[in-house]
Amino acid sequence: MTQATFIKAALDPTAPLPAGLVTPEGAPATKRFAVYRNNIVVGLKDALAQGFPAVKSLVGDEFFSALSDAFLRSHPPSAPRLPLYGAGFAEFIAGFAPAQPVPYLPDVARLEYALRESYHAADSAPVDAGDLSDPLLFTRAVKLAPSVRWMSSDFPITSIHAFALGGPKPEGGAEDILITRRAFDPVATSFPRGTINVLEKLAAGDALEHAIEAAPKQLDLSLFLRALLDGAAITAIQEV
């Protein structure tokens, strides 16, 4: 029997037992084979539940079980690295018909995955306070830490995410989100829509003054710069 036959049958609960898998008496090992079926599904479901606790909390155990079951059968991990399993979960949820009544769910998954990527990203040292007193600072480009992430949503996702994990009732509307990590725990901060334009320009190597031109009117620049500095998000000031 090939491993293709084994795994196909293991992932399809309605498939017959592959020939040649036997009990000690030589009988078909149907229930014994079910141990592997169960281990695969339970192990991967647990990994998704650990990686997407807010999604799970928002939809409940039963729904999450059905959702993660459908995902893992069509999207098993592409590498033996469960800490980063679920890169395509948000897109999958967006196309999962039973989840349509919860339109913000894909973005909650997107935020949780971005937080996880940030958590595992390379360590880096923030820029020295002295470098920030450079009189030409605004003509310089900045280097962002490997743990920095950002995303945009039509929903108040940071607030919904916090609510799902035990916080107060969510409020607010569409937002852009900056994720930073000073030591080990990533922090998501909400900003007005359009703020990610600034981050994209900074990441592309534009001078600070040009990047800031892309900011939306409602953005409080001092709050934004404070979030970058508090979050150890800038690791170097450099020539454009």
Binding site: Q3, A4, I7, I40, P77, S78, P80
Partner: peptide
């Protein structure tokens, strides 16, 4: 044991003949 097949990782120690 084996645990990957055609690029998929199945997170279990699967048996061998």
């Amino acid at each position: 044991a084996w645990s990957t097949h055609d690029g998929g990782f199945y997170n279990d120690l699967l048996p061998l003949p």
